[in-house]
Every structure is written in structure tokens, then in C-alpha cells.
Simulated assay, not measured.
Amino acid sequence: MMHRLIRLFAPLALLAAQPALAWGDYAHRLTGSIAWSQLSPAARAEVQRLLRSERQLETPDCKLASIEDASVWPDCVRGQYRDRFAFSAPWHYQNISVCAAFDINAKCPNGDCVTAQIPRQQAILADRSRPAHERLQAFSFLVHFIGDMHQPLHLGDKADLGGNNVRAAYGFKAPDRMNLHRIWDSELAERALTEPPAIAPQRITRTQRRAFTAGPANTAARVAEWARAAWEISRTTAYPELQDYPDSCSFSAEALRALPRGMVTPDYVAKATPAVRDQVTRAGTRIALLVNEALATRPAAR
């Protein structure tokens, strides 16, 4: 078993001295690249026009010059311009309990959650009466939040902040700072998405695109379906497959702190990797769907 763990996690030692790639960086940027490859020519032209209004956002420490930048800009401004963008903090997730039936309306007061914000930001992006920089901000939020929603622990929850309060170990990386949510955000995403065969935007087939975008025409209804699927992965894989960690829904906040540290094993990684890769591919395709719809019509000639 130890030899298997060494073979599985040894590549991570080479990454230790490098900047961390995460769902907020590596996976998000990949969703952006996938989306860009599927945008219509008219949508691409409008996005490029909106990107030229970047300076009006007055966030010089957070670059916004491409769809890949847009995919991570909301996380950047939360850190670099915390006071200005504190309002957006709850928009990145929705803690829907996996201990009860799926409820799209749970834990979303006043629409301050990821599933409510996706239709809102799409509507702002589509509104050509708004200033370009406002629509650019909405574009970035839309791209980022679709990515966030496809990370299962941005939706599934056991009263532990989507796994943030679940202590977990991943190979030999700083166990005192590791938790289940972080592992899905970063270490697991890095491994799943860099493992051959690489996910290439141009290799996503029309059949896959149709399957990933099938469903209701209404954005809110689509989002509910996409959210349920991500939530289901957290319910069936992210939580119960964690070795040495009790799969229970009855722990209080105090009890959570006393629970043993769960272990992300090679078997866990093998089961989670296809889900990570599939979710990123779906997210990129669905970003393109909603952006294409928002930018489908040109303003009438005057």
C-alpha cells in the first residue's frame, strides 16, 4: 500500500515549490479555453469588445484580457479588493445538504448563491443598454460561477461548509492545512486534469456538446439540473469514499473537530478523477452555451 501511495503522490513533491494550481486557476482557465473554442464568431467579437473596457473596472492587480482571465478574475478581486467585492463572496457556492433530498432553493437567501447568480449575470451580460464594463464584470462572474458550480463541494454540504471543515490527508502535503474542499479545489483537480490524455477543447465532439447542453431552454431550470448532478457527485463520491472518515450526517460542529482525519487514497483518486474531468468539460461547454445565448443578437442598426 505504501508503495502505491508513493507512486501516486510523488509527482506532487515536484509541484511543492511552484505556484499552486487550483479549481480557481488551472481548472477554471481550462473551462475558459473550452468555452472560447465553442463561442460563435459574433459572441467572440462582442467579448473582445467588452474586454477593452477592462480599465473602467479599476482592478489593475487582477488582469482581465481574455476569457481565461475572466474565469479567475472573481477570485482575484475577492483577495485583492476585498472591501469592494465582499458582496460577491456568497455567490461562489451553495451549501445544499446531501443529508436530505436535493433542494435548489436551500441556503440561498436573497439570491446570494451560485445557482441564483448565474441567470442574473447572464441577463446583465445580455443587456446592451448597460455600460460595457458592467457587462464585462457580469461576463466574468458568469464564466467563473459556472465553473464553481461544477465543483461538487461548491454545492454539496454536511453542515461542514462544503467539506472545508472535514480534515483530510492527501499524500504527504501539509496535513495540518488540508481539508476535503481544498483537495477537490486544488490537489485532486491538478492531478485529474494533467493526467494523460489531456483534455483538449478541440477534441470535444458535437455529440458531447449536445449531451452536455440538452435540457430545458430556461437558464434557471438548466442550472438546477446541472447543480443536482454536481451535488450528486458530492453525495456519492466526495464524502462517502473518504477512507477512515465516518460517513454520517449527524455530527455537530464540535464533533467535526474531533473526528479522525480522512484519507484520500489511490482508490479515492481513481473514482474521483473521471468526475473531475467530466465536470470541467461540461462546465466549459455550458459557459459557451450561456454566453452564446446572451450575445446572440446584435443591436439594431440606427
Rank of each mutant, 00 (worst) to 15 (best):
H3T: 04
R4Q: 10
L5D: 14
L5P: 02
I6A: 12
F9R: 00
P11S: 05
A13D: 06
A16M: 11
Q18W: 14
Q18S: 07
W23K: 00
D25I: 04
A27R: 07
R29W: 08
T31I: 09
S33E: 12
Q38I: 01
P41R: 01
A42G: 07
R44K: 15
V47A: 11
L51A: 09
E54R: 15
R55Q: 15
L57Y: 13
T59H: 09
I67Q: 06
D69A: 03
G79H: 14
Y81D: 02
R82K: 13
F85M: 01
A86N: 03
H92T: 04
Y93E: 06
Q94P: 09
F102G: 00
D112S: 05
P119R: 02
P119D: 03
R120N: 08
Q121R: 12
D127S: 10
R128L: 05
S129A: 12
P131W: 09
R135M: 07
S140D: 07
V143D: 02
G147P: 10
D148K: 08
H150N: 02
P152S: 00
D160G: 06
G162A: 09
N164K: 14
N165G: 02
V166N: 05
V166H: 06
A168T: 07
F172E: 04
I183V: 11
D185N: 08
S186N: 04
E187V: 03
A192I: 05
T194Y: 09
P196T: 01
A198Q: 07
A198M: 06
Q208V: 04
A211H: 14
F212Y: 15
T213V: 09
G215Q: 11
N218H: 07
E225A: 09
A227N: 06
R228F: 15
R235H: 13
D244I: 01
Y245H: 15
S252K: 03
S252R: 05
E254G: 11
K271N: 04
T273F: 12
P274Y: 07
G284V: 08
G284Q: 07
I287W: 11
L289P: 03
L289H: 06
A296G: 06
T297H: 11
A300W: 15
A300K: 12
R302P: 09
R302S: 06
